[in-house]
């Protein structure tokens, strides 16, 4: 650990601890990836009479076309894509606005209340949000549909986006804005041409994270779906009581590859956002 001289006995103990830690880390990775590996492997499992089995009964590629041809499954994927897109877009706008206000609002008391609100968003269990929204819509007489579902899954995504944007806004150099003001820029022009380009990578990272979150949302969506607006996780959850078909795993594998691609993009954006900001019209 340090360059200081240690006795050979001490070094042996250090090496044993380090090896133990490395082994623990490797086991944790194995633990985390085992179910994903299983879900991919079992999307090729033949199964028995169209049902998934714990024992691997043989290889087949049939489940991928089967998943594609399952109309209800395909519709639920479409709904999920649509719902997650609009929810992520709203979370991106609201979260950016909130994240910026968390850092730059002139009043310290307002900043305190806003950060309180942001943390509360993260610590209310999803099931409580789900039932509260269901009750809220029932009492106010708003019929459930795509819009009510989209609005309902935004709060947690807004909090995540706000925290990412906040982290970036904290590193903004105020001298750039002052220089812009000196050169005759208005507040709005400064916001658009100086601040927004610097925040953009964080905003995109937040938006993509929100998209992944909203796409995968099960608990809140379970309370707000209707027979016509059914998302993929809710559809899968509902299909479980009949025993899941391997086509479910095939669909999940495709969605996983899609999500990992999105995350790769988000990581790229975040990496860019950590580099010193380049001011100016982007």
């Amino acid at each position: 650990m340090t360059a200081r001289a240690v006795s050979t006995k001490g070094q042996g103990a250090v090496r044993a601890t380090d090896a133990g830690l490395a082994l623990w880390f490797a086991l944790a990775i194995l633990f985390l990836f085992a179910p994903i590996a299983v879900s991919i492997l079992y999307s090729f499992n033949a199964g028995i009479v169209g049902k998934q089995t714990a024992q691997f009964t043989g290889w087949t590629l049939d489940w991928y076309p089967a998943a594609w041809n399952d109309l209800a499954l395909r519709r639920s994927v479409q709904t999920s894509l649509y719902v997650a897109f609009w929810a992520a877009l709203i979370a991106l706008a609201m979260g950016t606005s909130l994240g910026y206000a968390l850092v730059r609002h002139p009043s310290a008391r307002v900043r305190w209340w806003l950060s309180g609100l942001t943390y509360i968003l993260l610590i209310v269990p999803e099931v409580v949000i789900g039932v509260s929204l269901l009750l809220f819509y029932a009492v106010t007489g708003v019929p459930l549909g795509a819009a009510t579902l989209i609005a309902g899954i935004t709060p947690a995504a807004i909090a995540v986006t706000a925290l990412i944007v906040r982290a970036r806004a904290l590193t903004l150099d105020p001298r750039l804005e002052e220089a812009a003001a000196d050169l005759g820029s208005t507040r709005l022009k400064t916001l658009w041409f100086i601040i927004l380009p610097q925040l953009l990578p964080a905003i995109l990272a937040g938006g993509l994270m929100s998209y992944a979150f909203c796409f995968d949302n099960l608990v809140v969506a379970a309370f707000l779906t209707t027979p016509t607006v059914n998302t993929l996780p809710v559809y899968l959850y509902g299909s479980l009581q009949y025993g899941p078909a391997p086509s479910v795993y095939a669909a999940a594998t495709v969605v996983f590859l899609f999500t990992v691609t999105l995350l790769g993009l988000a990581a790229l954006c975040f990496q860019l956002s950590r580099k010193p900001g380049r001011a100016g019209a982007g």
Partner: peptide
């Protein structure tokens, strides 16, 4: 970031 539900379902197989 992979589907939460599918990971839990896979634990059923495991």
């Amino acid at each position: 970031f992979s589907s939460f539900l599918v990971r839990v379902m896979s634990w059923q197989i495991l």
